[in-house]
Simulated assay, not measured.
Amino acid sequence: MITDVWKQIKKNQFAGVYLLYGTETFLIHETIQLLLTHLLNEEEKDFNFSTYDLEETPLEVAVEDAETFPFMGEKRLIVMQNPVFLTSEKTKGKVDHNITKLEDYLNNPAPYSIIVIAAPYEKLDVRKKITKELKRKAVVEEAKKLGDQDLKIWIKDRAISNGVNIDDKAIEKMVSVAGSNLFVLTNEIDKMSLYVGSGKRIDLHTVEQLVSKTLEQNIFELVEKVVHRKVEEALRIYYDLLKQNEEPIKILALLSSQFRLIYQVKELSRKGYGQQQMATSLRAHPFRVKLAAGQAQLFSEDELKRLVHLFADADYQMKTGGLNKTMIIEMILFQLHSLSQKK
């Protein structure tokens, strides 16, 4: 796991080359920041830290920089962003790279330089020679979405790094309110840490008082109100979102996405899938799958099929201007409420 790399860096144990790939770009960013903090002081950063976008700069330029002796320090940190040549994506018309230059470097890396290859892609092309060489000679870690338990551990560790503690109930509430986006969670943890002060504790009340709900969380609560026959509360959430200048078409898209996930989870559950298998198959965060599994129990398969078609029709109406956009979602909420009353 990428957190194991963090532990090594914090002990000032560095590899010569890191290949970090995956769609959780926050984890890649954090690794680079951690290396920067532990490798270079403020004066050295101006001279010995370089970052290159390989969609704009030839690879060999970055490699030559890594081969250059550090100035006013002992180490250099070279970050190579967007190495699309490690994927199966066609690179026609983009920058030409001398891949051999990197292969040669891997055989004889500069002892004073640390290279981070940041690849924000879900998969790498393991058939390519350079990918195989990196897997053999670099520290390779996947920056993937954290599972439910890993996410809670990460939140606790983040709070501790800020000099505060956080209760388990506060963590549960925080994830349910703010979601699983690490950039969002970081901002919320940092905000609460400043509020409670060093050495103090973030409790459930602090989260309820300070953490902002995401649009996605408001949509989840809206769905929860409807399926539990609380249409007035659902409408209140909807009107609050409109007051916050949220577009009806965006709200509809999130509602559609939630019910599509509920339907997919119900189908996979019927086939015997576990929640972790569902998350992998649907490419959804385990926490979202867990919530959808609970909601799926409130609907039959036929009801969910009808709802998916209902949302598709609403999307068509909204995009063709057949009805008032605000009214379309109101009608959907009343139809969902009517459906829940038949249960």
Rank of each mutant, 00 (worst) to 15 (best):
I78T: 03
E122I: 00
P109T: 05
I99Q: 01
K230S: 15
L307Q: 08
V207F: 06
T25D: 11
K169Y: 11
R229D: 10
V265E: 06
E221W: 08
R136N: 13
V164W: 02
R306M: 13
I329Y: 06
K145D: 11
D315F: 04
P83N: 00
E188T: 01
S269W: 02
L310D: 06
E43R: 11
E216Y: 03
K200T: 05
R283D: 10
F299P: 08
K129N: 14
Q276I: 13
V61P: 02
E224H: 13
H228L: 09
V289K: 06
F47H: 06
K101N: 08
K132E: 07
V226F: 04
K290E: 05
W6V: 02
E44V: 02
E133V: 09
P248H: 01
H337D: 14
W6Y: 15
G199L: 02
R136L: 10
F259S: 03
D168W: 11
L134A: 00
D240Y: 14
K75C: 05
E330F: 03
L106A: 10
M192V: 11
D96G: 03
D125F: 07
K7M: 09
T214F: 07
G274L: 03
E89V: 12
E172H: 13
I99T: 05
H309W: 13
L235I: 14
D104F: 02
K173W: 07
E247M: 09
M318E: 06
K156H: 12
L339A: 05
K156P: 05
Y105R: 02
A119Q: 05
P109W: 04
Y112H: 12
H38D: 03
L146H: 04
L185C: 06
F69N: 07
Q317H: 12
E208Y: 10
A159I: 07
T51E: 14
M331L: 14
G16W: 02
F299W: 08
